[in-house]
Simulated assay, not measured.
Amino acid sequence: MTKIKTPVLSITAEIHELLSKDGFRPEIIENNLVKVMVEGGLFVIAHDEKDQGYFEITYQPFWKEEDQSKIFQLVESCNKANQQTKFAKLITQGNKVHCVVQCLHPNTLSFYNNFKRYVSAINFGVSAFTESMNKKTLH
């Protein structure tokens, strides 16, 4: 009796397939990166082939501060938003702000079952940051 081998999908392909089945239109942009639009925002999902349980979702730079005198305010607003969020964290890269969730899961399906919660957490973090920046700008 011959066993039929089922093709094993890479983690990237699994993420792509799960997103597609839910109606998203993901795009593989590198071996371990998938980008996808969710609720009008561009998210990039990454994983580490050497650490199979590690996943990361990044909301690409959503704020860019051209006024160098507001960089301290930018960092302060990130810190305030980070205090309000559970597992989404805002990070600065120069004058740009990203929001990221880094997580560990035993498999891709476990990660994906939490995907919408992670997106919600990122959106909350972005809102908290934006609110803080806008309040400080008005004063």
Rank of each mutant, 00 (worst) to 15 (best):
K86W: 13
V38W: 08
A128V: 08
R25W: 02
S120T: 10
P106F: 14
K136W: 01
P7S: 03
G53Y: 04
R117I: 12
E76H: 08
F129D: 02
E14V: 05
N82H: 00
V38C: 15
V38I: 15
I71M: 01
I122D: 01
C78K: 00
K86V: 03
Y112F: 11
A46Q: 15
V8G: 05
I122R: 01
S10H: 07
T58Q: 12
R117G: 13
H16A: 11
F87K: 05
T2S: 03
V38D: 14
L19G: 10
A46T: 15
S20M: 11
V44R: 08
V34A: 12
T92H: 10
A13G: 03
I4W: 00
S127V: 08
L19E: 08
D48G: 07
C99K: 01
G94S: 12
I91Y: 12
T58Y: 07
L18M: 10
K80H: 09
T137S: 10
T137Y: 03
D48R: 08
K136G: 00
H98G: 06
E39D: 15
G53M: 06
Q52A: 13
V75M: 06
K35A: 04
Y118C: 09
T137C: 05
F24N: 15
V100H: 08
E17M: 08
Q83D: 04
H16R: 07
H47R: 02
I45H: 07
L19N: 07
A13C: 04
V97R: 12
N134K: 09
E131C: 13
G125S: 04
Q52R: 03
H47E: 05
P106W: 11
F129N: 04
P106S: 15
I71T: 01
N123P: 06
E39F: 13
T130S: 09
L42C: 03
K89P: 00
E14R: 02
K86A: 03
F87Y: 13
S127Y: 02
Y59Q: 13
H16Y: 14
V100L: 14
N113L: 03
F72H: 04
T130I: 10
H47G: 12
A13Q: 13
Q73H: 03
G41A: 12
V101T: 04
K70H: 04
I4G: 09
Q73L: 05
M133L: 10
N95V: 02
L42N: 07
F55I: 00
K21C: 13
C78G: 00
M1V: 04
R117Q: 11
T85F: 00
N113T: 01
V8L: 13
G40R: 13
N113K: 06
I28T: 07
R117A: 13
L9V: 04
Q73T: 05
T130V: 08
N32A: 00
S20R: 11
Q84I: 08
S10W: 07
S10N: 09
Q93D: 05
N32R: 03
V38Y: 11
Y59K: 12
V44F: 10
I4A: 07
F115W: 06
F129I: 02
L109Y: 14
I4C: 09
V97I: 14
L138W: 02
C103S: 12
I122A: 02
A88Q: 01
S132R: 06
L74F: 00
F124E: 06
E17A: 12
H16Q: 10
K135I: 12
Q83G: 04
L42S: 05
V34G: 06
F43Q: 02
Q102F: 00
A128E: 07
L104R: 14
F124K: 09
